[in-house]
């Protein structure tokens, strides 16, 4: 990888190319100004009050819920692959002499030199951050926030603990545990599509909210199955709240959205926590076996 490749006349050509790209993209963006079509979004907004009271939650976890499932997968796979680069899961061919895997050494931490004030300040801060992450998670269906945010906030508490107290920090999550809850979170999200699939045939149909078969919104033709009351009892009503808006009062429910959020949070905690832990301390298989 030589930096010579972009010097001299090649550099000039590259700059000209970049300028062409810049001019092209910026003219197109200028033309877009004032011409943005609304398309499908008014329809989403019209339905919003019937779904999760938080418009964002119903977009992310209901209308585009399956997108978010795969996006969650991006985080999970990202953690998997990052940790693979460090050494978890490298495979060898039987009986064939191969080059030894590239080894990464762990980062050097000096916990002993830490200020006493920080050391005593650390635990309450970690407790507060964890509490905040749980608050964000539980309020996801009714206010801004959700699983992603909870996971990120929680793992920031984990990182803080690692920096302040080293490997034996108050949260003390092991690699196996993090991998486990990461997988559990994604699996929970994936399997929460199952109730809707079983009763209506649509994967991840929001069973609790149940707009289309409960008659809240009329004019639907072709919806075959109706959600049984028992399912609505289980998934819907605990979350049902009255939403008083200027154009009327809506009985609104988030359905399975809060549960999806919990799965999401587990997944993100597992993934990002694992990246923090393995990037700081390296990965060795032996430790995994002893546990």
């Amino acid at each position: 990888m030589e930096s010579k490749a972009l010097k001299g006349s090649r550099g000039i050509i590259a700059v000209i190319a970049l300028m062409i790209i810049f001019v092209g993209v910026s003219t197109s963006l200028l033309q877009l100004n004032g011409n943005v079509a609304r398309g499908i979004s008014p329809e989403y907004n019209a339905l919003a009050p019937y779904e999760a009271p938080n418009n964002l939650a119903s977009w992310v976890y209901d209308y585009r819920g399956f997108d978010t499932l795969i996006e969650t997968g991006v985080i999970y796979v990202g953690a998997l692959v990052s940790v693979l680069a460090i050494g978890r899961g490298i495979v060898r061919t039987k009986g064939v002499a191969e080059e030894a895997p590239v080894a990464q050494s762990s980062m050097d931490f000096h916990v002993s030199s830490l200020n006493v004030i920080l050391k005593y300040f650390g635990i309450p801060v970690i407790i507060l951050i964890v509490a905040y992450s749980l608050l964000v998670l539980t309020g996801a269906a009714t206010s801004g926030g959700g699983g992603f945010q909870c996971g990120v906030i929680f793992s920031s508490a984990f990182l803080l603990g690692m920096i302040f107290y080293g490997k034996k920090n108050p949260l003390n999550l092991s690699k196996k545990f993090l991998i486990g809850i990461g997988g559990f979170g994604w699996a929970l999200y994936a399997l929460l599509g199952l109730p809707g699939y079983l009763v209506t045939g649509y994967w991840q149909y929001n069973v609790g909210a149940d707009l289309w078969s409960s008659g809240l919104i009329s004019g639907v033709s072709g919806m075959s199955a109706v959600v049984p009351d028992i399912m609505r009892q289980i998934f819907g009503d605990p979350f049902r709240i009255l939403l008083v808006l200027s154009d009327g009062t809506y009985a609104s429910t988030a359905g399975i959205v809060p549960l999806i959020n919990i799965g999401e949070a587990f997944n993100v905690i597992g993934a990002i926590g694992l990246i923090f832990l393995v990037f700081a301390y390296g990965y060795t298989d032996e430790e995994g076996k002893s546990k």
């Binding site: 490749a5 050509i13 590259a14 000209i16 190319a17 970049l18 062409i20 790209i21 092209g24 993209v25």
Partner: peptide, 16 residues
């Protein structure tokens, strides 16, 4: 760097 260079050239040509 070489691949980046050629990607830029290609993209500029496509845009132009």
């Amino acid at each position: 760097n070489r691949v980046l260079f050629w990607v830029m050239i290609y993209f500029a040509v496509i845009i132009a």
